[in-house]
């Protein structure tokens, strides 16, 4: 059973605000999806050895320095910036 508390908890983890008025309908929606997901729990399956999709291993990079991006590029999309830093103002 998905509870209102579950939704509040996962919303906090997801950094999403859920309106108090939407909490019940969202709980109900989530319950539906969870029930759908639950269908897998009716299947018996031996513990599969699923690793990664093509069973790849050891994709490594050599430890060689490449030039970093200019700070102007790094900050180009920042909604706010100051003194070459990304900035989050406190606001009120």
């Amino acid at each position: 059973m998905v509870t209102r508390e579950d939704i509040e908890n996962i919303a906090l983890l997801s950094k999403l605000f859920v309106d108090e008025k939407d909490l019940d309908s969202l709980t109900e929606e989530m319950q539906k999806i969870v029930s759908f997901a639950d269908t897998i729990n009716s299947v018996e399956v031996k513990s599969g050895d699923f690793d990664n999709i093509n069973n790849l291993s050891n994709a490594f990079r050599k430890d060689e320095v490449k030039e970093s991006y200019p700070v102007g590029e790094i900050l180009k999309n920042a909604p706010e910036q100051a003194e070459d830093h990304f900035l989050v103002r406190k606001r009120a």
């Binding site: 970093s68 991006y69 700070v71 790094i74 003194e83 070459d84």
Partner: peptide, 16 residues
């Protein structure tokens, strides 16, 4: 492949 050097001006040892 950015450098790990300590210090450096802010956000200059960065890439996407």
């Amino acid at each position: 492949s950015c450098t790990t050097k300590f210090g450096g001006d802010p956000n200059t040892h960065c890439c996407p």
